[in-house]
């Protein structure tokens, strides 16, 4: 496959354990600057662990994680955020008893206020007029779709160069799924690299440039999204809905 020449994030032979459980087995990823890369895989394949390893919530037992060429596998999470990695967490994980605005402030936590805060807020509000309308509301009372917008907005407030998204479409109505994927594409077009775990493989492959397929902790397949869409194994395992007679 075509490996990106200008990587922003790399996993080099990463092994991660939970106790005795070997979750990531010698995993290698290369995420190029400006790409959207999808990570596909079934339950317990190691997708969320990948995200946690990037954010430093889980430390790998061996291997290297490089961000912008620097080894980050031993850095505290706060330092990774400061360097430009922001998460959109599985199930949104907003701070439920804080207002929408305070959640956005938390997104900018590692940046001194004033350093473009108002400008970033404006950008989020432009992207999500709904978030602006709801800025005074307690986050836990928003609908799932609205929460996802705040979660993405919160990540943008960190002014990240890489956003790691864990299941951005989970639990959303089809209308919101469309919208969220449009937004992801838009954010990417403005220059932010996206590494995305997603159950909804057809959606994920429709906007991604490349993808990796993870199976019980091992990368079993990788390639351009186009190649993967046409791969019979992928079509059967992840794109079941395309197996309609006549669909090509």
């Amino acid at each position: 496959m075509s490996e990106p020449t200008d990587p922003i994030l790399e996993f080099q032979a990463v092994n991660t354990y939970y106790g005795d459980l070997h979750v990531l087995k010698n995993v290698c990823y290369t995420i190029g600057r400006g790409e959207i890369v999808s990570l596909l895989g079934g339950n317990a394949s190691g997708k969320s662990t990948t995200m946690k390893t990037i954010m430093g919530v889980v430390r790998p037992a061996s291997g290297r994680v490089l961000f912008d060429g620097a080894e980050i596998q031993d850095m505290p999470t706060s330092e990774r955020v400061r360097r430009g990695i922001a998460p959109v967490l599985e199930a949104r994980r907003l701070f439920p008893r804080m207002t929408v605005y305070e959640n956005l402030e938390m997104g900018a936590y590692t940046r001194p206020k004033g350093a473009g805060f108002a400008q970033d807020l404006e950008r989020v509000y432009t992207l999500f007029p709904r978030v602006q309308e709801r800025r005074g509301q307690i986050a836990g009372t928003l609908s799932g779709g609205e929460q996802q917008m705040v979660a993405i907005g919160r990540a943008l407030m960190a002014r990240p160069r890489l956003i790691c998204m864990d299941e951005p479409s989970m639990g959303l109505s089809p209308l919101y799924v469309e919208q969220v994927f449009d937004i992801i594409r838009h954010i990417n077009a403005q220059g932010t690299t996206i590494f995305m775990v997603e159950q909804n493989a057809s959606m994920a492959l429709s906007i991604a440039h490349r993808a990796y397929v993870l199976q019980t902790g091992q990368v079993v397949l990788s390639g351009t999204a186009k190649d993967l869409r046409e791969n019979p194994a992928i079509r059967e395992a992840y794109l079941g809905e395309l197996q309609v007679p006549g669909a090509a």
Partner: peptide, 21 residues
């Protein structure tokens, strides 16, 4: 800011950590 980080940590420690707290 630190007070807000405190509330965030009380509500979801892992998420707070991933905001850089």
């Amino acid at each position: 800011k630190l007070g807000r980080a405190m509330r965030a940590t009380a509500q979801d420690p892992e998420a707070a950590r991933m905001m850089g707290v």
